[in-house]
């Protein structure tokens, strides 16, 4: 029997007021399932950073969350411009966010580093002009 729970979300482009709704919902559901608060915090932070990135840089996208007793896997897929230099984007402080995003308190170049910091594994697949898919896993064990 496959006991994977799958949650699916659509992230709208340039809607900062709604950014965070998907991660809030995942947070709520994980809480109901009795997942440890530290695991929930890590998943929520990593996913929210991803959502914000989709709103800022891509034209929105789709998020799928797979929950098993062992781990939580998040797959964030957009059809945005792609990341030209992933290595640079992974450096804390490197940012290409526009001024209006910085005025909201974001865009300090902490998104991808924060996602990496809060997850046990993170893979970035990106193609210029086609889009980016980020796969992150947070393990249940070792993060309590």
């Amino acid at each position: 029997m496959d006991d994977t729970i799958v949650l699916e979300y659509t992230v709208d482009a340039e809607d900062f007021t709604r950014a965070g709704e998907a991660s809030s919902d995942v947070k709520k559901k994980l809480k109901q399932m009795g997942v440890s608060p530290n695991v929930i915090r890590k998943v929520a932070i990593a996913m929210y950073e991803g959502e914000i990135n989709m709103v800022i840089h891509a034209q929105g996208g789709e998020i799928k969350v797979y929950i098993t007793p062992e781990n939580i896997k998040m797959v964030l897929k957009d059809v945005g411009p792609g990341i030209p230099d992933v290595e640079k984007a992974m450096q804390a402080g490197w940012s290409t966010a526009p001024e209006e995003v910085r005025n909201l308190g974001f865009g300090a170049g902490m998104g991808l580093p924060n996602m990496k910091k809060n997850t046990d594994s993170m893979e970035v697949e990106t193609e210029i002009g086609k889009g980016t898919t980020i796969t992150m896993v947070v393990n249940m064990l070792g993060n309590e």
Binding site: A19, S23, S24, K27, P37, R41, I45, L104, G105
Partner: peptide
């Protein structure tokens, strides 16, 4: 910083 994203961060960081 007082905007809707402040609340999102507050909620997610608990």
């Amino acid at each position: 910083m007082a905007n809707v994203n402040t609340l999102a961060v507050a909620s997610l960081t608990d």
